[in-house]
């Protein structure tokens, strides 16, 4: 699999590696997918990178590759920001080859990472018709998570037809941020757009929301989909090739 902009892959790895340290990458003719739960089984991440999004891609037979995201992250940190990246696995090999090429083709780096033997449990992700779908700037969402984490470890997300309200409370007191739905949309990427079938109010652990925001560099927008008694879906699209979707169980007030 070859990417002209290796930085896309680095952003994917940085977006995943705090939530899951290692994961099984499923490679087929259609592209690369990954599905993994965090260690406490409260969040799940689903990655899709379709073959047509790569500059070149070939997969002669389906492979499940156990990869340490922590190690992969370290190796990718050596990549130049404009480098192209090629990842290859030879048949019956126990390692993955990561090749980086500088833009002006004068520097070639090659790394080999040992593969891990992981038992990959595959869960079915049901198509859900959410009560509410919010689109907003990913930087704005990251900022809100950071600000709300000052006040508490849970964030209540309430949606109304006017907008969406994030609130947190704790020992210090409480705080809330309300975003009004954008009316005159000049730049889609900066708009707050809410499609609401019915209002929802759900509480989530801000620690996880902040971890999800590590994937924000992938896309200027983030999608938040909510329904009562349903895991939150937090989606960052990967331009022209797929997405990273995080799912988080709501805090259920015992």
């Amino acid at each position: 699999a070859r990417l002209l902009h290796g930085s896309i892959f680095a952003k994917v790895i940085e977006g995943l590696r705090e939530l899951v340290n290692e994961a099984t990458w499923e490679c087929s003719g259609n592209g690369i997918t990954l599905q993994a739960m965090d260690s406490s089984h409260v969040a799940l991440v689903s990655l899709v990178m379709r073959s047509e999004g790569f500059e070149s891609y070939r997969c002669d037979r389906n492979m499940s590759l156990g990869i340490s995201l922590v190690s992969m992250s370290k190796v990718l940190k050596t990549m130049g920001k404009d480098d192209s990246l090629t990842i290859r696995v030879n048949d019956d090999s126990d390692s993955i080859i990561i090749a980086m090429e500088s833009q002006n083709q004068d520097k070639f780096a090659d790394y080999e990472l040992r593969l891990m033997d992981l038992d990959s449990e595959h869960l079915g992700i049901p198509d859900t018709d959410y009560s509410c779908a919010i689109k907003m700037p990913s930087s704005e969402f990251s900022r809100i998570c950071r600000d709300m984490s000052i006040m508490g470890d849970s964030v209540l997300i309430c949606t109304t037809k006017e907008g969406v309200k994030f609130s947190a409370k704790g020992d210090l007191g409480q705080g809330s941020i309300r975003l009004v739905q954008t009316t005159n949309i000049e730049k889609e990427e900066e708009a707050v757009i809410i499609e609401m079938k019915e209002a929802v109010a759900l509480t989530f652990a801000v620690r996880y929301l902040s971890m999800f925001c590590k994937a924000a560099p992938l896309s200027p927008q983030v999608g938040l989909s909510l329904s009562e008694d349903t895991p939150l879906m937090c989606e960052f699209k990967i331009a022209e090739m797929g997405h990273v979707r995080f799912y988080l169980a709501p805090k259920i007030e015992d």
Binding site: S40, H41, P231, A249, I252
Partner: peptide, 14 residues
């Protein structure tokens, strides 16, 4: 805990 079970049930049921 409840949340873990909740998440697993949501995806498992499918």
């Amino acid at each position: 805990n409840i949340q873990q079970q909740f998440l697993l049930n949501f995806f498992k049921q499918y």
